[in-house]
Amino acid sequence: MEEQIGGNDDRWKGSIDNITEMASNLDSLQKLLLKKAVFVEEDTFARASLVSEQSRTIKVLEQRVQTLERELDAAITAAAHARSEKRHAESSQKAAESRAQEVTKELENTTKVFKLHMEELRGMQEQILKRDNEIKLLEAIIQTLGGKERLGKSGANG
C-alpha cells in the first residue's frame, strides 16, 4: 500500500513539473511575440486576412480541379475501353452472322443434293420395278412355253 502512495506522489510531482515547464514556455512565447509583433491598420489587416482566405480557397479549388482531372482521365480511359469492347463485340457478331449464313447456305446446298439423290433413287426404283415386272412376264412366258413343250413331249412319248 505504501508503494501505491509513493507511486501516486511521484506522478503528481511529475505532472506539476510538466505544468510548470509549460507555463515557462508560454511566458517565453508571449515575450517573443511582444518583441516581434507588428501592428497594422485595421484596413491592411482585413485585406491581408481576405488574401489569406482567398489563398486557402484557391488551394482547395486547385485540389478539387486535380481530383476532377483524375476522375476525367479515368472516365476517358473507361470510355475508350468500352468502345474497344463494343468494336470487339460487333466484330464477333459479324463473324457469327457470317458463319450462320455459311451454315445456312451449306444446309440449302445439302438439301438440294439430297433432293437430287432422292429423285435419282426414285428413277432407279421405277426402273427396277419395271424390270422386275418384265422379268415376271418373261418367267410367266417361259413357264407357259415350258408347259406346252412338256405337253407336246408327253403326247409324243405316250
Rank of each mutant, 00 (worst) to 15 (best):
Met1Ser: 05
Met1Asn: 08
Gln4Trp: 02
Gln4Tyr: 07
Gln4Ile: 07
Ile5Cys: 01
Gly6Glu: 14
Gly6Arg: 10
Gly7Pro: 01
Asn8Gly: 08
Asp9Asn: 13
Asp10Cys: 05
Asp10His: 08
Asp10Glu: 12
Arg11Ser: 10
Lys13Val: 00
Lys13Thr: 05
Gly14Pro: 00
Gly14Cys: 09
Ser15Trp: 06
Ser15Gln: 10
Asn18Met: 05
Ile19Tyr: 03
Ile19Pro: 03
Ile19Asp: 02
Ile19Cys: 00
Met22His: 10
Ser24Glu: 13
Leu26Thr: 09
Ser28Gly: 05
Leu29Asn: 11
Gln30Gly: 09
Gln30Trp: 06
Gln30Tyr: 06
Lys31Phe: 00
Lys31Asn: 01
Leu32Thr: 13
Leu32Ala: 09
Lys35Leu: 00
Val38Arg: 10
Glu41Tyr: 02
Glu42Ile: 04
Glu42Ala: 03
Thr44Trp: 03
Glu53Cys: 03
Glu53Ile: 02
Thr57Met: 08
Thr57Leu: 08
Ile58Lys: 01
Lys59His: 10
Leu61Phe: 01
Glu62Ala: 09
Glu62Ile: 03
Glu62Asp: 12
Gln63Arg: 07
Gln63Glu: 07
Arg64Glu: 11
Gln66Ala: 13
Gln66Phe: 02
Leu68Ile: 03
Glu71Asn: 09
Leu72Ile: 02
Asp73Ala: 14
Ala75Lys: 09
Ala75Tyr: 01
Ile76Gly: 05
Ala78Glu: 11
Ala78Tyr: 00
Ala78His: 02
Ala78Gly: 03
Ala79Pro: 00
Ala79Gln: 10
Ala80Ser: 14
Ala80Val: 07
Ala82Gly: 01
Ala82His: 04
Ser84Lys: 12
Ser84Pro: 01
Glu85Gln: 13
His88Gly: 08
Ala89Gly: 03
Ala89Arg: 04
Ser92Phe: 14
Lys94Arg: 11
Lys94Glu: 04
Ala96Cys: 03
Glu97Met: 04
Ser98Phe: 01
Ser98Leu: 01
Ala100Leu: 01
Ala100Arg: 11
Gln101Glu: 13
Glu102Arg: 10
Glu102Asn: 09
Thr104Gly: 14
Lys105Glu: 15
Glu106Ser: 15
Leu107Tyr: 07
Lys112Asn: 13
Val113Leu: 12
Val113Thr: 13
Phe114Thr: 15
Phe114Arg: 13
Lys115Gln: 09
Lys115Arg: 08
Leu116Gly: 08
His117Gln: 15
His117Ile: 10
Met118Leu: 11
Leu121Pro: 01
Gly123His: 13
Gly123Thr: 10
Met124Leu: 14
Gln125Ile: 06
Gln125Cys: 11
Glu126Ala: 12
Leu129Arg: 07
Arg131Lys: 15
Arg131Gly: 15
Asp132Ile: 00
Ile135Pro: 02
Lys136Glu: 08
Leu137Asn: 11
Ala140Gln: 14
Ala140Phe: 08
Ile141Phe: 13
Ile141Thr: 10
Thr144Tyr: 12
Thr144Val: 09
Leu145Asp: 06
Gly146Leu: 04
Gly146His: 04
Gly146Ser: 12
Glu149Leu: 11
Arg150Asp: 07
Arg150Lys: 13
Gly152Ser: 12
Lys153Asn: 08
Lys153Met: 06
Ser154Asn: 14
Gly158Pro: 05
